[in-house]
Design a protein around this nucleic acid. Structure first.
Length: 425
RNA sequence: GGAAAGGUGGCAGAGUGGUUGAAUGCGGCGGUCUCGAAAACCGUUGUUCCGGUUUCCCGGAACCGGGGGUUCGAAUCCCCCCCUUUCCGCCA
């Protein structure tokens, strides 16, 4: 959520920012509602002050035998007027809140202006030693390979749940688990995160807090009976750990990492890139979340991208880093890097991670603050999160890049102690 | 699923329909004392919004789980909802 005060003081900058993000211009509407709001507040508070003043005198009036009938009648009238004005005021506030909740975050000044993914900027790429984009043999894609090696069974996954719910079998299941454990351990041991294992069903307040609701509601599963949402990412429960809290400055930056399955309806995206793992309703992800002081958040973002990259370097999987342009940034993000891994069978890059700085956008929604020692005042923290990483796309790149001409898969060395085997097939 | 109890400030815990933002204790902050520390004593202690001065200083409003209601006036009475705890049942 954007800060209404900031909008009030910088309307033209915000207007331009919304335009850059391909968002509707709601500035004039907000400003006029805000003005109305303040005028109603002034009126109703005047009346309340009067009411309080009179109320304070009533006990004495009663004691001294003063006739209170006239005063009561007058105060009754004032009370009705307050109720009426308060009603109007809350209508206005609801409207403002609704608009703000549907208004996206603004991009940071370092983000390139652009309208679509085509204008994202490649920042750097990393290729393992001896890597070549030319394939020496016919690379089987992950669905063919999964079937051949009995490690992935998309047909039975579909039988059990529906399309987009993968079944990992045999060494495929073990490899998946190994990846998750490896990534968690790596972040814990080398990057200073604390591990969290959060609930994967969350309430509506949590979904609002991180910004999935109201804008993305259609993409979320929902368990109506209990009012709970299966999480689309561990970002939701982990960021909400500190909802409605005031953190100590000395504890920042707080760094959490956690594994969770992720559930996405992916409404309306059938047919496109939907083969095998490329677009699924359930997948596994290790997620990094940070709560930082505003002045540190952009350094923390760079560090987080490096943390995710280190996983890929350790696995020796080719990747590139994209800085998303303003038009491709997600609703809540101020700046975002995507990490894409190479798929030789698809002959393209696949998004395996996304690391974002939300600045105070989520913190304002979720009311996550810290108390600065110097000023003693609470301030909103900046929140960041990034996948470190999502296993499904990573698995595609891994199976394809580690393929042998015989159609076997070599297990990356760093995973050996987790899998207990060195080759599949 | 059945039964009961309860939700008050950072925490613990009082609270009679009327100057109650709210007793008291702990914690925190500042001070006295001390070579220093502890103890003791004194003082202080939330958040948000509006307005003014233009900054944390003054004035005002709101906040005792959430939402309605009664009343001149609600933390206190009534209704609905949410949550927590305990016991019983069921169960990975």
């Amino acid at each position: 959520m954007l800060d209404i005060k900031f909008i009030r003081e910088n309307p033209e900058a915000v207007r331009q920012g919304l335009r850059n993000k391909n968002a509707a211009d709601v500035i004039d509407e907000i400003l006029s509602l805000d003005e109305k709001r303040r005028s109603f507040i002034a009126q109703t508070e005047d009346l309340k002050a009067k009411k309080n003043q009179v109320s304070a005198q009533i006990p004495q009036m009663k004691k001294s035998g003063h006739d209170t009938a006239a005063v009561f009648a007058e105060m009754k009238r004032v009370g009705d007027e307050i109720a009426f004005l308060d009603g109007q005021l809350s209508d206005i506030e609801e409207k403002i809140d609704d608009i703000l909740r549907h208004t996206p975050n603004l991009a940071h000044s370092s983000v390139p202006v652009g309208t679509s993914a085509a204008e994202n900027v490649e920042v750097r790429r990393w290729l393992p030693e001896g890597f070549s984009f030319e394939n020496e043999f016919k690379i089987l894609d992950h669905t063919e390979l999964g079937k051949k090696l009995s490690i992935l069974d998309f047909e039975r996954g579909t039988k059990i749940s529906g399309s987009g719910f993968p079944l990992y079998t045999n060494k495929g299941a073990t490899l998946e688990r190994a990846l998750i454990n490896f990534m968690l351990d790596y972040h814990l041991q080398n990057h200073g995160y604390k591990e969290m294992m959060p609930p994967i069903l969350v309430n509506r307040d949590s979904m609002k807090g991180t910004g999935q609701i109201p804008k993305m509601e259609e993409d979320m599963y929902f368990i109506e009976k209990d009012g709970l949402y299966p999480i689309p990412t561990a970002e939701v429960p982990i960021t909400n750990i500190h909802r409605d809290e005031i953190l100590a400055e000395k504890d920042l930056t707080i760094k959490y990492v956690g594994y969770s399955p992720c559930f996405r309806r992916e409404a309306g995206s059938y047919g496109k890139e939907s083969k095998g793992f490329l677009r699924v309703h359930q997948f596994n992800k290790v997620e990094m979340v940070k709560f930082s002081k505003p002045e540190n958040s952009y350094d923390e973002l760079e560090a987080m991208v490096n943390d995710a990259e280190n996983i890929l370097k350790a696995l020796k999987i080719p990747y590139r880093i994209l800085m998303l342009c303003t038009g491709d940034l997600s609703f809540s993000a101020a700046k975002c890097y995507d990490i894409e891994t190479w798929s030789p069978a698809e002959n393209k890059w696949l998004e395996a991670s996304s690391c974002s700085n939300f600045e105070a956008f989520q913190a304002r929604r979720a009311n996550i603050r810290f108390r600065r020692e110097e000023t003693k005042k609470p301030e909103f923290v900046h929140t960041l999160n990034g996948s470190g990483l999502a296993t499904s796309r990573l698995m595609v790149s891994l199976l394809e890049n580690y393929q042998t001409p015989e159609g076997k898969v070599i297990v990356p060395e760093v995973l050996h102690k987790y899998t207990g085997f060195k080759i599949i097939g």
